[in-house]
Simulated assay, not measured.
Amino acid sequence: MAPPTPPVAAPDLGSMRIGLGQLLVEGGEPERNLARAVEQIAQAAAQRCDLVLLPETLDFAWTHPSALHEAEPIPGRFSDQLCEAAVAHGIYVCAGLTERAADGRNYNAAILISPQGDILVKYHKINLLTVEQPFYAVGQTLNVVDTPLGKIGVNICSDNYLDGLPIGHTLARMGAEFILAPSSWTVDYSLTEEHDPYEEKWVRPFSILAKLYNVVVVGTTSVGYIVGGPYEGKKSIGCSLAVDASGVRAQGVFNEFAGQLVVADLSRPHRPERGTEIGVMLQRKGHRFDQLPS
């Protein structure tokens, strides 16, 4: 009997050095927040990052009432600052902003900017929490873009809740190798790091996608106490995550007081399957198409 054929090793596709920019975001203070974002972009470039991922709605902060009347278009004054920083430092930037669209509605938006300052992806959050629906309209599109770093998909924060995982499934089906999620993870003011609030809420769904599809899922969140809006008094505490099929590759500290740049070197995953080949691969892994993953 002939010996079994050894498995073919996946090719080395290189890696992405990504900066997870945990950023202090103050409610209703876009100029100060954008200044900190630009500074963190510079820090990431100084540490030779290829891409820096910044938090959700870093201009006004998540659900701050001032955004209802002061949000800017994209492209616009706030996105231009990020584009200029990307060019100045030769780095990809993914960040969350509030967008005032041409139809007059506000969107919880995320953009991916090239080192040449071009907006490659503009995404509007789909899985909106009930409390944020008075502030933002529901998004209606998903995009994956080819870059020299790999195929990148973008979503936002609660799009990665267990009930929102079809969004991540779709990005993976579209060929994403990296899913980037600007976020604003919040907890009650009384919670401390001993409560470990993120294991089920974030590590689990990120890991489901990462292991099923061999993708890298990265979420960066703001830090600071929430001022104004329905979550006033709660806090954003960091714990930003980078997860691949092998597990958690990087995690920010539990820190509601100040920003932090977490640098992670993440291998570009090998994803040869396309279309229905992905379904066949999932079936081999025991995935059930008639139920949400658990």
Results as ranks from 00 to 15, higher is better:
200 E>F: 11
181 A>W: 00
202 W>A: 04
180 L>I: 11
205 P>Q: 06
207 S>P: 04
212 L>F: 04
179 I>Q: 10
216 V>C: 12
207 S>L: 01
177 E>D: 03
216 V>S: 10
192 T>G: 14
215 V>M: 05
183 S>T: 13
185 W>V: 07
187 V>P: 07
181 A>Y: 00
212 L>I: 01
207 S>H: 07
196 D>N: 13
196 D>P: 01
182 P>F: 05
194 E>T: 13
194 E>H: 12
205 P>R: 04
209 L>E: 10
200 E>I: 10
215 V>G: 03
217 V>C: 13
215 V>R: 05
189 Y>D: 15
199 E>R: 15
210 A>E: 05
208 I>T: 10
182 P>S: 05
206 F>R: 03
203 V>Q: 03
189 Y>L: 12
183 S>L: 10
207 S>F: 03
183 S>P: 12
177 E>Q: 15
189 Y>H: 14
193 E>C: 04
180 L>R: 02
190 S>W: 14
178 F>W: 05
193 E>Q: 13
213 Y>I: 02
184 S>T: 15
213 Y>C: 04
208 I>S: 03
177 E>K: 05
188 D>T: 12
199 E>Y: 14
184 S>I: 07
187 V>N: 05
216 V>Q: 07
186 T>Q: 12
208 I>F: 04
177 E>N: 04
204 R>S: 00
211 K>R: 14
191 L>R: 13
176 A>L: 11
187 V>M: 09
201 K>E: 06
